[in-house]
Design a protein around this nucleic acid. Structure first.
Length: 206
DNA sequence: TGCCAGGCCCTCTTTAGGGCCTT
C-alpha cells in the first residue's frame, strides 16, 4: 500500500521525444525529487537514450541534443534505477496524465509495476488558484512568487518547481481552510470536483 | 490514402466542439 500522507511524495517530470507513447514517443530524461514533511530529501536526474534521434523541435524545446543522448544510458537501464527511487511512494506531476502515460509505457517495457497513485498540480491549481492567468507551470511559479533558479523544460528543474508549487498549494489550503495533515486522498478528491464546489468541500472537510 | 495524443473542462452541451496543458 502506498503512503497516504500528502507530505511524503515523489515529484517527477519527463522530457520526451513527443506527446504520445502510443505513437512511438519515448522518454529522453527523467527528473524527480522526493519530499518528506515539506522538505526535499532526495533527487534523481538522468538522460536516457531512446535509440533514435530527437527532432529539431524537441532539441530546441528542451535543450537536450542528440549529442547529449548518444552517450546516455538506454531507457531500460535508467527506468530500472528510477523504479528503485520511487519505491512505493505516491507520485505527483504537473499535468500528471502526461507523465503517467510515459511512466506506464516505459515501465511496461521493463515489466515493472508500481503501487503509488498520482496527484496533479495542474488539476489542483485550476481549483485552488482560479484567478491565475493560466495554469502552465511557469506561470504558476511566477504567480505564487516561488523562487526559481534554472531552466524550464529540463526534467529536474521542472520537478523541483512542481514540488515548490505543491508545497505552496498545501500551505495555502492549510492556511485558508484551517486544515493540518492534509491527506493525499483529499487532494485527489479535490482535483476532480467542479470548481464551484471546491470552497464548500474544503470548508466542511472535518 | 489519409489519418495522426488524450484527459480535463467549459459551454452557444449531452445526437458536440474547442481550448488548455504536457513534449
Amino acid at each position: 500500500m502506498p503512503n497516504t500522507n500528502a507530505n511524503s511524495i515523489v515529484v517527477l517530470d519527463f522530457e520526451t521525444t513527443g506527446l504520445s507513447p502510443q505513437q512511438g514517443d519515448r522518454a529522453i530524461e527523467i527528473g524527480a525529487v522526493k519530499i518528506v514533511d515539506g522538505i526535499v530529501v532526495d533527487s534523481f536526474q538522468e538522460l536516457m537514450n531512446p535509440g533514435r534521434p530527437v527532432s529539431t523541435f524537441i532539441a530546441e524545446y528542451t535543450g537536450i541534443t542528440n549529442a547529449m543522448l548518444r552517450t546516455a544510458a538506454p531507457c531500460d537501464e535508467v527506468m530500472d534505477s528510477f523504479a528503485d527511487f520511487i519505491g512505493d511512494e505516491n507520485l505527483l506531476a504537473h499535468n500528471a496524465s502526461f507523465d503517467k502515460k510515459f511512466l506506464d509505457a516505459e515501465f511496461a517495457r521493463i515489466n515493472h509495476n508500481y503501487v503509488g497513485e498520482f496527484a496533479c498540480t495542474l488539476l489542483t491549481s485550476r481549483r485552488i488558484y482560479q484567478d491565475a492567468p493560466n495554469h502552465k507551470l511557469g506561470t504558476l511559479v511566477n504567480y505564487k512568487n516561488l523562487a526559481e533558479d534554472g531552466t524550464f523544460h529540463r526534467a529536474l528543474f521542472d520537478a523541483e518547481m512542481t514540488a515548490k508549487l505543491w508545497l505552496k498549494i498545501l500551505e495555502d489550503i492549510s492556511e485558508e481552510y484551517f486544515l493540518d495533515n492534509i491527506d493525499f486522498k483529499l487532494i485527489q478528491k479535490l482535483s476532480l470536483l467542479p470548481k464551484a464546489k471546491v470552497a464548500k468541500f474544503l470548508q466542511t472537510y472535518r
